[in-house]
Simulated scan of single mutants.
Amino acid sequence: MFKKILLATSGAPSTFGAARVAFDMGKRYGAEVLVLNVMGVPTKAYSQVVNDVRTGEEVEVDEEYRAWVEEELKNTFEKQIESVEYSRIILTTGLPHREILRAARENDADLIVMGASSGDSSVYRKGYPGSTLQRVAKAARCPVMTVHRETASYWGGFGNIVFATDFSKQAESAFKFALATARELDTDLTILHALDISGKVLDQNEIEDRIIAARERIRTAYDLDGFKNCDVEVWEGVPYVEIVKMARERSADLIVMAHHSHELDPEKARIGSTMEQVILRAGCPVVSVSKPDKV
């Protein structure tokens, strides 16, 4: 299922958790790990002088500089690179989100893995996912895995997957990915709908009626096609809190959610606030699915 994993990394410590998960997946599932580093954003079109993604300083990207960056990445991830059978380092310059999407497309990646600051210094600024992750998650043809907290990277492979649905159209693609992963890797799957009652005054009978209706909707909307290792849960509360709680209770190794936005312009589209909060708080990797191409 995972043949090529694209790890987008700046080489900074904030991306080490994502690297740990990406290389562990490569080792477990025999996938090739493509280590992508966007060295900088050109100051002018086709210019060799770029603004370094990590420091913001102007540097000239010549063969000597490329060799130095590649050697730094090899030293940084030396043990991980040795642990997998197939790996490759890709160096480029440009706008981080465009280069990540381009590399994923050209290499036919099955999964993009990103950390807290995989492409620019604004990612997760002030505690929220920044522009690079936003744009990659919106436009990627394959699922995008985010590892934000360091604790989310101490990973033991797949054993239990939580798929959180809001019954949107995009959630259908996320469900297909979650089910296919659970089936192929023989894991448990929990389908969760978090009934949003934050800021609402509802009596208990109404809440329970909505929970019953949501359970029925899950069974109607999502065809398990004979898959047996699945539970259906509907919890009421603040959605991101309930999703994180469910993942913790089930000792989940992965949370799968849909990326969707009312914005049509991918340059402006944002990940929904629920996913933002789940990414920031989850104790396991979080996968967002936008397009159905690679699910």
Rank of each mutant, 00 (worst) to 15 (best):
M1L: 07
K3H: 14
I5S: 00
A12E: 10
G17Y: 05
A19D: 06
Y29P: 00
G30S: 14
G30L: 01
A31R: 04
V33T: 14
L34R: 11
T43R: 11
Y46P: 00
Y46V: 00
G56F: 09
V59G: 03
E63P: 01
R66I: 05
R66A: 09
A67D: 03
A67M: 01
E70N: 02
E72M: 05
F77L: 13
V84T: 04
Y86T: 09
R88W: 05
R88L: 01
R88D: 10
R88V: 00
L91T: 05
P96K: 10
L101A: 12
E106G: 01
N107W: 00
M114H: 08
S118P: 02
S121R: 10
S121A: 13
S121E: 13
S122L: 11
K126V: 05
P129S: 03
P129F: 14
P129Y: 05
S131P: 01
S131M: 12
Q134E: 12
R135I: 07
A139F: 07
V144M: 00
T146C: 10
R149I: 03
W155L: 04
W155G: 06
G156C: 03
G157E: 06
G157T: 09
G157W: 08
F158D: 06
F163Q: 03
S168K: 06
K169P: 02
Q170L: 07
A171H: 02
A174T: 03
K176H: 12
F177R: 05
L179K: 14
R183K: 15
D186A: 04
L189C: 03
T190R: 03
I197T: 15
L202C: 03
L202Q: 12
Q204A: 08
N205M: 11
E206T: 15
I211V: 15
I212Q: 10
I212R: 15
R217C: 01
I218Y: 06
R219V: 12
T220W: 05
G226S: 11
P239Y: 13
V241N: 14
E242I: 13
K245V: 03
M246N: 08
R248D: 13
A252H: 03
A252Y: 01
A258C: 11
E267N: 12
S273D: 12
R281F: 05
G283K: 15
K294V: 09
